[in-house]
Design a protein around this nucleic acid. Structure first.
Lengths: 225, 225
DNA sequence: GCAAATTAATGATTTATTCAAG
DNA sequence: CTTGAATAAATCATTAATTTGC
């Protein structure tokens, strides 16, 4: 009856964000806003200004609900091949993709920057559908889960962990065999990447960001190109 | 000597991410990866495949440092208006921008989706330089800080809390106060927006996402379109 | 042997925390 | 001190692997 379940399309989110940022002549009048200390009543005042204030209601009002940003208007076959691609919903990495990602990870990559993600995505795209966000998320998740895995291991290291139901739990034994190089539990800040609209700029790794890996990922000096 | 500090340009991150996602004919061979049970040694195998594996070193090697993703290859004026805007580093909202944002916030907007951010950015761009990420971050931060402000108020509502930060006492006591209008501390999940490359799709607000605001931002039913 | 039910992994988001510019 | 910006932690949700009942 309803067709909503079949609406899964892998839309190509083409750059949406900054194509609007027209070159404002930088005449940002004050370039300063009220501090929260000062009572800010400009809400009412703004509605009075003759400036081309856009219609607030059009924003606050639902008005469009969950519209797909990328594939919205294209009156294409989007309805037809609902299942042209197997899992329309979330990225399902192929073996090759996982292999490459792990290779990169083991090579020391932890938080690839925008350009790196771009390249990785381009390459991994040869082995299956993938987007930049998938690469980013993969590194985020992998890093976090390696970390917590290591933390677990370090805690219940000696004792047999008297809780572990010994019935079916032979699962996680042979996986953590030789990867004694992952990442350290005392990881600290570093904010490199940035995504699409995000501009990547200076990064200040406070510490041993990605381990004592042989090769540092992000040199501090951004002299790039 | 180095010019790194002047590399700040508000590049127009034109869709960078997904222009690579060519329509892989969904022949992702297996489309399934090994479970951690099976030791995955495909790292070595991958390097053997005759597929056009890219040079790993080019990734792991620094090689270019923090280059702006959007303005990278376009040999345009990117160097020119490096300082067209006073503070090249971070967004400095104008009064008008803040006013509008707060209006929207008070109107009930908490986590604008991609399209909304796009529109807001376009509008706010009339009053000064701004990017989509600024809008996104503003809502994130404003929401979080309103929340913690409220929490602080509800806790030490009598004492002036002269200097000592409340030292992280049991901060989760009287959390579900009636917050009047802002947002509730017992907020739960909802994942609407998505950024640039991110595709926005179904959203499942579990609960009272944006309060008892008069107008609901995201209708629960994801059948949208 | 196969498909529903279960479980384990993990992709994707949101929230909390942190860092630093101004 | 405020707050923009970024990352890490926690959480949610979905898919693949596994088990189970026929």
């Amino acid at each position: 009856m309803v067709v909503e379940a079949t609406m899964k399309v892998h839309q190509f989110a083409r750059g949406f964000w900054d194509q609007h940022v027209h070159e404002t002549p930088s005449l940002t009048l004050g370039c300063k806003r009220f501090r929260p200390l000062a009572p800010k009543h400009l809400t009412a005042k703004n509605s009075d200004t003759n400036d081309p204030i856009f219609d607030l209601k059009s924003f606050i009002r639902p008005e469009s609900g969950p519209i797909k940003i990328g594939s919205s208007d294209y009156h294409k076959k989007e309805s037809a091949q609902v299942e042209t691609h197997p899992g329309g919903t979330r990225w399902n990495p192929t073996q090759e993709q996982i292999g490459i990602l792990e290779m990169l990870y083991r090579g020391g990559m932890r938080t690839p920057n925008a350009q790196q993600i771009e390249q990785i995505t381009a390459q991994l795209g040869k082995y299956g559908k993938i987007e930049g966000k998938n690469v980013f998320y993969w590194f985020q998740n992998h890093k976090a889960r390696e970390r917590q895995k290591q933390k677990r291991n370090s805690l219940g290291l000696s004792s047999h962990s008297p809780r572990t139901p010994p019935s079916i739990l032979n699962t996680s034994l042979l996986l953590s065999e030789n990867k004694g190089d992952e990442d350290s539990p005392h990881k600290r800040k570093c904010r490199p990447w940035t995504f699409e609209g995000f501009d990547e700029e200076k990064r200040y790794c406070t510490e041993d960001e990605d381990e004592d890996r042989t090769l540092k990922l992000f040199p501090l000096h951004p002299e790039g190109r």
